[in-house]
């Protein structure tokens, strides 16, 4: 439940093929702190930027971002800056929901900037991805625990991937004060301050799945039980995390 003190905001993006090999954006809407802008795309695809019009999410805020790539669409979504989770006036947690859907013969590249969990913040992120069987996806999520030299806030992040209704990945990460004990220990993050996931789904992985491999000491390429792979990575900071994930994406071709 969101107490009255928080801001509720939604952003919606719908992309579809225009029938001439290009991508149209019949719906591009944001409100309050969630603004969306079309930027110059590369080739035939559409490119959209999420632009934070104010800081947040703060405690009590509830943001929902929905994006759908319908048949024929090549949609790429980024963000103008890192998202900073901050403590709010009221002590309730903030919630950030991302719902992504990709139809057959469509592609979504979801590559936002990092999420930084500032000291005292309390944020729950829920990312749900639903793909049609031949949909293509690249999704990156990066969590940075605290600004430079700062203790992190409380952050929980749950990421699910379904292809054709079948759940291939359901993963929750909880860290910071109040998270279940041991989150920063030798089984959890081991003192690393940046953690990230790169999720790539391609129909051709069904017949030619990538090979499981270590990409670096703190990063592994993990084929999921279906036509998708997860790159799971930890790093001392956001910069080094980005390098790991960029290298992983390049390695996948």
């Amino acid at each position: 439940m969101t107490p009255p003190g928080g801001v509720r905001a939604r952003a919606e993006i719908l992309a579809r093929g225009d029938g001439h090999g290009r991508t149209a954006l019949p719906l591009l809407a944001g409100e309050g702190p969630l603004a969306v802008r079309r930027t110059r795309g590369t080739g035939t695809g559409a490119r959209v930027l999420l632009v934070g019009a104010m800081s947040g999410p703060l405690g009590g805020d509830h943001f929902t971002v929905t994006a759908r790539a319908a048949a024929g669409a090549r949609l790429s979504v980024g963000s103008a800056a890192a998202t900073l989770a901050l403590p709010g006036q009221d002590r309730a947690g903030a919630r950030h929901e991302v719902r992504l859907a990709v139809d057959d013969d469509a592609e979504l590249r979801w590559l936002p900037e990092q999420l930084i969990s500032a000291h005292g913040s309390d944020l729950e992120v829920v990312t749900r991805v639903d793909l049609a069987p031949t949909a293509r996806l690249v999704l990156r999520e990066e969590q940075v625990l605290g600004r430079a030299g700062e203790e992190p806030g409380r952050l929980s992040s749950r990421l699910t991937l379904r292809i054709g209704g079948h759940c291939l990945l359901d993963q929750e990460l909880a860290c910071g004060p109040g998270a279940p004990a041991g989150w920063d220990g030798p089984a959890g993050l081991g003192g690393h301050r940046a953690v990230g996931q790169l999720l790539v789904a391609r129909p051709e992985f069904a017949t030619e799945p990538p090979v499981t491999r270590m990409l670096a000491e703190g990063a592994a390429l993990l084929p999921l039980p279906g036509p998708a792979v997860l790159v799971s990575a930890v790093a001392p900071d956001g910069l080094r995390l980005r390098r790991l994930l960029d290298a992983a994406l390049a390695a996948l071709g």
């Binding site: 929750e172 089984a187 953690v195 703190g218 592994a220 990575a233 930890v234």
Partner: peptide
């Protein structure tokens, strides 16, 4: 709930 270093 997951533990990244256990998986990696």
């Amino acid at each position: 709930r997951s533990a990244p270093l256990l998986e990696i």
